[in-house]
Write a protein that binds this DNA or RNA. Sequence first.
DNA 1: GAAAATCTCTGACTAAAGTCAGAGAATGGA
DNA 2: TCCATTCTCTGACTTTAGTCAGAGATTTTC
Lengths: 294, 294
Amino acid sequence: MDPLQIECVRSFNRLVSQRIGALDDSYLARGRPLGEARVIFEAGLAERLDLRRLREKLGLDSGYLSRLVRSLEAQGIAEVAKSAEDGRVRELRLTAKGRAEFEAYDAASDRLAEAILAPLAAPLRKRLATAMAEVERLLRAGAVEITIEPAGSADARWCLQQYYSELAKRFDEGFDPSVGSTFGEDDATPPAGWFLVARSGGEAVGCGALKRLDDTTGEIKRVWTAASARGLGVASRIMDRLEAQACAAGFKKVLLDTNRALVEAHALYSNRSYREIGRYNDNPYAHHWFEKAL
Amino acid sequence: MDPLQIECVRSFNRLVSQRIGALDDSYLARGRPLGEARVIFEAGLAERLDLRRLREKLGLDSGYLSRLVRSLEAQGIAEVAKSAEDGRVRELRLTAKGRAEFEAYDAASDRLAEAILAPLAAPLRKRLATAMAEVERLLRAGAVEITIEPAGSADARWCLQQYYSELAKRFDEGFDPSVGSTFGEDDATPPAGWFLVARSGGEAVGCGALKRLDDTTGEIKRVWTAASARGLGVASRIMDRLEAQACAAGFKKVLLDTNRALVEAHALYSNRSYREIGRYNDNPYAHHWFEKAL
DNA sequence: GAAAATCTCTGACTAAAGTCAGAGAATGGA
DNA sequence: TCCATTCTCTGACTTTAGTCAGAGATTTTC
């Protein structure tokens, strides 16, 4: 890896960790320990927040969080109550006073952001905002995680739905997933197939499936990336994983088909050295058929 | 200020503070408190480091640092010895073992940077490095501080020297500060004049001077920005301060002259609504003369 | 040469952050 | 229905971080 790029990232990290120190200080300025401030902040962002999720989000010990919350209760800032769904779980809610505290922290964050922008002239401000957005986007792209999971999971279904509605918009002929379908949840359930979901910070941003056609042949289907995550190589990484899975399953080649409207998919397959072949199925929406030896 | 830009900065802060958490964790992973790790890191970067400077750099209490250092001594990681120049000051040096520890922390930073870059394809990596460099540059630009200080201070002299050697390179006729000079240290010492130094993270990156010509007229001289800080509005901010100082001194107008080779200075003055006037002095290096009413 | 200032260290603290082992209540699955 | 699991709380800790008031050695200033 390019040592100049590494130095660039390190230098960035050094500088920005100073900045973050300033953020912590502006939180501490309200005279409350950082732990409590973080809890107030999270509680203010989410309307209802169970301690379990909060613990996971802030990475705290259950005993420690319990005490933090009790301290906030004593200060009249938060209330806890049994969850209606699960009696073991307790839910945190800010009181009116707590909400006021949250607003104060929120305002402090705003002020800090303003202090960063204020000394810059308008065009530089714009450049800074643009560059920050780019860094953020690319950092998130790097943090995308791809996992195999049941094709019937909530996120998997959501991805498929997004995918179908996009096809319906883009195909000249429209799209109805039930017409001539060669793909159901069973086709993506091991050992008949596999379903992948790509997530960025917990949110699903892409999917892909591999279906067993015979002992040596797999078919790649349902490769989709959310609009918010395009141009970040997510589809490419999904393809990597699908092909790796195909290898692991002992397939010698993978096939796939595509509609002529999906030009970026076409480019993706060509780049990954897929070779156009003749029609191998009777998918009514397909115009091109590809093959790749593994 | 644009609320979208503020939100952009805040979102960036949120994301990056998670990243920084990861950095701290990778330091803590060596089983040593963060305070000690930071001391080792600073001691590794600078060959010889006196405790006074270290304390200032890390913002630590003297008693606290004293204990941190003693703990490192006990671990065989660092040694302290009286400074040769000043018997009150103690200097910190890493032992061989300490240097090995430093290398380990250094490697951890490298690994973290690599982990950020690794999942991205080469073109995205390049985009990330570029965007990070841009963010860093602009954050530093925002943190530039401009202070009035004696024209004879070390940084002031350094800036002037840089400025003179640049003029010598750029002027067709060369430049010798002693020829026809209308500016000495006395001319920038209150109440005869003022000298400003711009600093970014402690390092001088620009300067400027205001000289009293008569009770109602000031002259702006020696406005210079280091090459590393150009394009960031530093000269513009120096001009702001000089004009503000001129107002405060009761001047009604300011004058300045410039050489035809300094095209960017020319543009700067025009943008700030300086009006070209006739020759008002006999500076042998000047081709243009400007005036601005305050 | 004396007084003021500077730098470091020590002792005596406090507060915050975090860990660990269990107890008690509620839930889910066999 | 019962047993394992999950979620939260409590008590009893430790470690880290940080503060404050001097004392002692040195240097600087007048």
